[in-house]
Design a protein around this nucleic acid. Structure first.
Lengths: 217, 217
DNA sequence: AACTTATTTTAGATAAGACTAAAAATAGAA
DNA sequence: TTCTATTTTTAGTCTTATCTAAAATAAGTT
């Protein structure tokens, strides 16, 4: 099996590859892993030796089939544990990420099979992210970033990009949760800020917030 | 916090100290940790620097108050997770040890508090071992090793010493579980073997088996 | 094309945790 | 008490994952 660090790097590269499409820069990996570029290079080279990534010096990194399989398996575990923490142990959705970061590395096929069954085969985690099935297939939902929607469009919140406590608590304070209906009342082209309608209330939100909310139109 | 390795050594020293009372030999630790005496010495010295054990060269090791606290916290987590695996995920009692060995190192007070509540504050794990409370207090049960009982005495099985799959499956095959009533029908002084009554059936068991069953008379 | 700047890689160090081989201390036997 | 066997410790090496500082490469500008 793979070490904790290897799994974390693979997961990180997977997420970066999803966002930007194409090879991932060493600096981007280092930044997301809260480490130095030299450390990232080191690990990338070890992963390349194990054929989990393909890598050419100075040209960036992409996951191989094998690398994707490992990353997706870790993501599956992470999201299932998040469901467990929220549904069964009554954690808030902003409290679960750190704990799931640890639980995702527990090694046991059988455990995850049983956990999945215990949770009644959930499709999405508490942040709206799809849970890969045991073969590594991920349902892709056609969702839009709120910041790309235009005036008078509406939809429901199906996911968040950021999972930091601060951001999720910001949403809680405004009664915004997965499933909440959101309508764009106005959009400022200068700074990308918006006025949105949530239930009976209207909010001003910055571009940064809007970029972290996924809407199904 | 402490590393996985440190926690495992502390737990190991705790168990050895319980069994033999008094300072624990380096070799005993190495053997239980499936490592070499030199590695054990190394770790013991690091633990001593952190004042988790008291240690005098060639004289053996004992846990300090701080060391006991860490060990007991890990044991609490291990046993709670075992209950979860058996009660909620329907694992057999012989399948849970390995997984609990991993889960016991997850760092989160809140998680354990909530898990304990979710499981309805269990007092014993699936093998009959008491679960320490959050202050580290362990209920001590007055139990006897079956091999020390004499003819015609009886009692109920409240725990097992061994937790290996082979041993637990041996018991399963004979319908012996925690709570089962057992009576000593005969005892051979030459080799310590016994004839016991379990429900309607009678079994021959070796001394080795008898030494691993805890009975409440 | 040449120069500057930013990114990436290499080289060399460190710490944790393990190992082997050799030295030191203890315990048991004669 | 002295010798031998066993246990324990030390010394030196290895691997993983990290770091800093320096070198190499790529990219952008004039």
């Amino acid at each position: 099996m793979y070490t904790r660090a290897e799994e974390n790097y693979l997961k990180c590269i997977f997420h970066l590859e999803q966002e930007h499409k194409g090879a991932v820069a060493t600096n981007a990996i280092a930044q997301m892993m809260h480490t130095k570029a030299s450390s990232a290079t080191d690990m990338i080279q070890r992963l390349a030796d194990k054929e989990l990534v393909s890598y050419r010096r100075y040209k960036g990194t992409t996951l191989t089939k094998a690398g994707i399989a490992v990353a997706v398996a870790v993501i599956r575990k992470h999201r299932l544990w998040e469901v467990f923490l929220v549904e069964k142990l009554n954690f808030q959705w902003d409290e679960v990420h750190e704990i799931a970061e640890q639980l995702e590395h527990i090694q046991s096929e059988e455990l995850i099979t049983r956990l999945d069954k215990f949770l009644d085969h959930p499709d999405y985690d508490p942040h709206g992210d799809p849970i890969p099935d045991k073969h590594g297939n991920i349902k892709k939902t056609e969702k839009k970033v709120l910041s790309e929607m235009s005036k008078s469009q509406h939809g429901i919140l199906v996911g968040v990009r950021e999972t930091s406590g601060e951001f999720l608590q910001y949403l809680d304070k405004r009664n915004i949760a997965i499933g909440t209906k959101i309508k764009v009342l106005g959009k400022e082209f200068f700074d990308g800020s918006m006025i949105i309608q949530v239930k009976r209330e209207q909010f001003f939100i910055s571009k940064k917030i809007a970029e972290n909310l996924y809407i199904q139109v």
